[in-house]
Design a protein around this nucleic acid. Sequence first.
DNA 1: AGAATATGAGTAACCGCTCTCAGAGTTCTG
DNA 2: CAGAACTCTGAGAGCGGTTACTCATATTCT
Lengths: 345, 345
Amino acid sequence: MSNRSQSSERAHAQVSVERVTIGLVAKTAGVSRATVSRVMNGNPRVAQDLAQRVRRAAEELGYAPSPVARSLALGRTGIIAMLVPDLGNPMFQGILHGLTDAAAQENYRLLVADSNENLHEEPVLAIEARRRCDGLVLCAPRMPAEQLLDLAPQLAPFVLINRELPGFATPSLTIDFAAGIRDLVTHLLSLGHRRLAYLAGPDTSASNHARVQALHKAAEGTFELVELPCGATFADGHAVADQLTDLQVTAVVAYNDLVAFGTLSRLHELGINVPAQMSIVGFDDIPFVRYTTPPLTTASVPMDQLGPQAWERLWALMNDKSPEENVHVRPRLEVRGSTGPAPSR
Amino acid sequence: MSNRSQSSERAHAQVSVERVTIGLVAKTAGVSRATVSRVMNGNPRVAQDLAQRVRRAAEELGYAPSPVARSLALGRTGIIAMLVPDLGNPMFQGILHGLTDAAAQENYRLLVADSNENLHEEPVLAIEARRRCDGLVLCAPRMPAEQLLDLAPQLAPFVLINRELPGFATPSLTIDFAAGIRDLVTHLLSLGHRRLAYLAGPDTSASNHARVQALHKAAEGTFELVELPCGATFADGHAVADQLTDLQVTAVVAYNDLVAFGTLSRLHELGINVPAQMSIVGFDDIPFVRYTTPPLTTASVPMDQLGPQAWERLWALMNDKSPEENVHVRPRLEVRGSTGPAPSR
DNA sequence: AGAATATGAGTAACCGCTCTCAGAGTTCTG
DNA sequence: CAGAACTCTGAGAGCGGTTACTCATATTCT
């Protein structure tokens, strides 16, 4: 059962399936471990015949270098990690794809750690993930700033998604939620809406906070705003919709597309026509909201750009170059069928 | 720039930010490395005062053991990995959650590798992921059996999701697609449907194959079956719906819920009433299809069970116990509003 | 031909941590 | 009070690689 290889003495008794290490290959090929290492790493200054012998031995034994040992010796792992609070969120999936591909081009692999929205585990998870790899893309919108600030030195190099961290210089990729909200609101106002509901996301969420702020600011003297606690999922949006009916609002701004979709669905069940009786807008532009009935008006976040940009900056950090400027992506207003003129009362 | 710590001589010239290793902590606390190791691992046979000193030193220096070095020394990493072909698939997300939680209970972490449906990269990815951790949960429905068989010895210990591997004894968790399809079909038949369309998934997908087989078998002498190439996404289902109108079918069996949802949505746009004019069923029971309009009848796969069961078996393998029997989960028929009596023609 | 220079392979130190083993210091026993 | 039985701690050998250095051999130059 022992994992340790038996140390020369008392070597029998066990069938001794000798582990295939660089040493075994070296012995088999009749060369030194250094030479095997050179061959395995494609160092050209090894004589052809030796290299041949080594390769043959490695082949026969089915040898592959241990990434763990290699990482230790090299001081780098060739891996980056991304921590997300919820893999189910299509938003992150977009980033993940882009990041995976971008990193792969430079022969880095991406591993994903999912904190499952478990706020408590997040710091530990982040540090553990980080320590096993060379860099981190961190998405922890709910983590208190001070805590993150404490962690920051241990996490470096890392790139932040969707938040900034005053007090620690590290690249951030953020989305201009305020601008997105402004565009949506402007659009709704132009359609004559003057009383809006906001279906709020999780109140610990920084991005929800940004939306709320933008809304309040825009509302001043222009329109009435009713804030409804809701959540971030389809089910949340579905559940909250019933409350909308007696609020006298003519338009709904949802925390995100999923919520909007859920609300849309429920309104349909309630026989409320969208957009004739009620307009509704989402946020994100996740893949399928262009197909809902009616298609959802939303603020489209170009998620496919974030992955590569995150990689670029992380790469710069890992190579002691200075990363490019922070990105503050401005969503594009995507007008579809879920918004229309405010009904005359 | 050099990563290597400068070797005692020529030690100045650099500001020498000495890395915080176990050695430094030991020196600072005035004990041996062994003792630091003991303290860090909670070994109780260390005198209180020493332990105290070590902890203080570690704290001051901000020391945390290197997981890489630890893994090498221990011969285990405390990590398992799961390889999925597509993180966007809600089905995998369900498994991932369950697996993360189950593994966490035993102090294992779960890392996710996403092959992005990249069939070519999959073997490399699987092996690399596996070699950096202690076990693998593999979900590679499209990988040819022979290739997987070749890889198997290098991947062990691993658990297969959604496929079996004749010729290599390793646990499998599979879903009884055939039974699910049979239940759905029986349901539709009982409602009087006699001509069905199947919206096929990716044709390389084993699970699609299983569905097709079951459908053909069920169809014999009972009903007519029209097979339509489609896909696995909401968009695919949406796009294919237009073809349904002139097929004279009264019911549609979709590859999965997303496809069904897409189709549902498009049919609605086309003014086709579901279920009055057309019944439609999905597969999986992903979280929100209970809220669609109408709610989707589907074969509900208990995804939350798969994660823990996968962990249980993987754990057994990693600890040289014999894993429990393979699981072949039978989906439960979930009758909702999207199915109704066949319209009389 | 003899010296200078390349070239290629091996030796051994090191990455950071764990763990066996043995020795020093204590407490128990007879 | 000597010797046995424990308790702790430190020394040092790994884990499986990489790489600076060294040295023997082959090559080139004068």
